[in-house]
Write a protein that binds this DNA or RNA. Structure first.
Lengths: 154, 154
DNA sequence: AACTGATGGTCAGCGATGCTGACGATCATC
DNA sequence: GATGATCGTCAGCATCGCTGACCATCAGTT
């Protein structure tokens, strides 16, 4: 059990068995790849995710977009603020329901999204490079299952 | 591409391909399992990790413990404060180097750690239950590789 | 039309997190 | 015994995600 192992070698042995630790640090490593890649577009990962959601649908209300992203609607306000300030999306009042803000990609937003998306995918591939294709596929699929696992009915 | 797919079904399709999203939400799901399990011991996951690090080594200085956990030494102060207030660890001045605080598990700390550790493992197993044994093993191993991947030499 | 309840966007504020910068105490070196 | 580094501590800051409140608006009722 290496109970009295010293040095930092013990870290990996001890904490490598902790899923929480692994998930957190895997995320940190991924961010190290993705952030610089996206910074060239003046974006962070969350902002790009918003652009992706908008690109995948007809124009959405802020609430719709927030729900698809799994963020709070109050968080979406600042997100759209930032993207609008960068000229990547436009807000306008919905005409069918004037409570809603319809958010839409600008022409520039579409272009930036496409480029940034490529950069994100490249960063992800670089991150996954230490794994074999098979392992990477299993990892992704397993995470998909776990991330969307329902809290048993309730 | 399901470009004009509507409804929340689109979420999983669109974001399920994003590793960052998957890692983040997998972590959230795991926390949903682990937190209530550890709350019975008055602990959160970080605190238990500190106990685990201490249990695995001879008594450590705060800095040593912090480095093994991958947290900042300023963060460790509050962590040890909390654990000491709960009577699970003891701080005392090192006699060889009086700048250091030696942190050590109390008898009660050892007992709580062992029990909480079991609860944590059970929560982790429950979390992984939707996966097959083989998948779970590949997942863990892949995360281990990715979490500890070195930023190419620098 | 007026009333009621729910909904969407916004903002202020809170607690948690993880850092930086500074400080005092202590050690190591010379 | 002076200098520079190290460890623990604290104050302060930025970020994050949430709650609660507010206003405008919609939908259903009367």
């Amino acid at each position: 059990m290496a109970a009295d192992d010293d040095g930092t070698g013990a870290v990996e042995e001890l904490l490598g068995a902790r899923l929480g630790y692994l998930l957190k640090h895997a995320q940190l490593r991924l961010a190290e790849h993705a952030e610089p890649a996206l910074a060239r577009f003046g974006l962070d990962a969350r902002e790009l995710a918003v652009l992706a959601v908008l690109a995948a649908s007809r124009p959405l209300s802020q609430l719709d977009a927030a729900q698809r992203l799994g963020v709070d609607r109050t968080t979406m306000v600042a997100l759209v603020d930032a993207l609008e300030a960068k000229g990547l999306v436009e807000r306008r009042r919905s005409e069918e329901d004037r409570r809603r803000n319809v958010v839409e990609l600008t022409t520039r937003g579409k272009r930036v999204r496409a480029d940034a998306e490529e950069a994100r995918q490249a960063a992800e591939r670089a991150f996954l490079a230490p794994l074999g294709d098979r392992e990477a596929a299993v990892l992704t699929q397993a995470l998909r299952v776990l991330a969307t696992a329902k809290r048993d009915v309730s």
